[in-house]
Design a protein around this nucleic acid. Structure first.
Lengths: 112, 112
DNA sequence: CGATTGCTTAGGCATCAACCTAAGTGTACG
DNA sequence: CGTACACTTAGGTTGATGCCTAAGCAATCG
């Protein structure tokens, strides 16, 4: 499944920018409209919107429009998928270290 | 602590590339020398080395050199930090959803 | 309805990231 | 000691990313 990993690299790509990173942190505390989100950054609005689009395209956030106001919220599924991948890599490695440790202990006992 | 988040965005940046992503997956299964890692990719060696450097600079991997062979291994701490950040954002959001759910249930009970 | 507000689209510029080839350093082996 | 091997350094091309201004559209408000 190379499709899966392509999706994950897009999520990481999205989180690699300080602006988008900060948006995710903000949205973890609750939904917010475009203008409120934008007000924290000194960037022009269209530039900021590109960041929101990117976050939405990779599935990290969702949005709905009511009247002329668009509201954004976090979409935890993408975050969870990335989190799970990381946990898998890390625990594979840590388990391997434990096995090595056991092996060395056995060697040590044999020599005693 | 804006230092913390800068470190995290660099980790995400590192994982945003398919080559580096694949290297981390490979190294989760155990250490490997430069040439073995490089053999999986059709890229020129110096190009590939840039990827390894980037992974190392953000703390995702370590390396040691013995003779003329450099061996790489995973460094789980950076991975753990990124994982923890994601879990925090996600659970903040999910807890908020639960609270909203409780609130709606209370409203519903009052109306019955 | 006319002006204002909130977002969207279009297009352009500058910097950086990912790749390459060519040439260098140091270790090992016959 | 000379050759081969494993990596390293230097330098250059190219496309993607991040930013801007200007102009457009649709929903309110007076």
């Amino acid at each position: 499944m190379p499709k899966q990993s392509a999706q994950l690299t897009r999520v990481f790509q999205a989180l690699a920018d300080p602006t988008r990173f900060a948006v995710v942190e903000r949205l973890s505390k609750g939904p917010a409209p475009t203008s409120e989100l934008a007000s924290s950054f000194k960037m022009a609005l269209p530039s900021f919107l590109q960041h929101l689009d990117m976050l939405q395209k990779c599935g990290l956030i969702r949005s709905t429009k009511k009247g002329r106001v668009r509201t954004y919220e976090l979409a935890p599924t993408a975050l969870k998928a990335a989190e799970d991948w990381m946990a898998t890599q890390r625990t594979l490695w840590e388990r391997r270290l434990d096995q090595l440790d056991n092996f060395l202990n056995e060697l040590k006992e044999q020599s005693e």
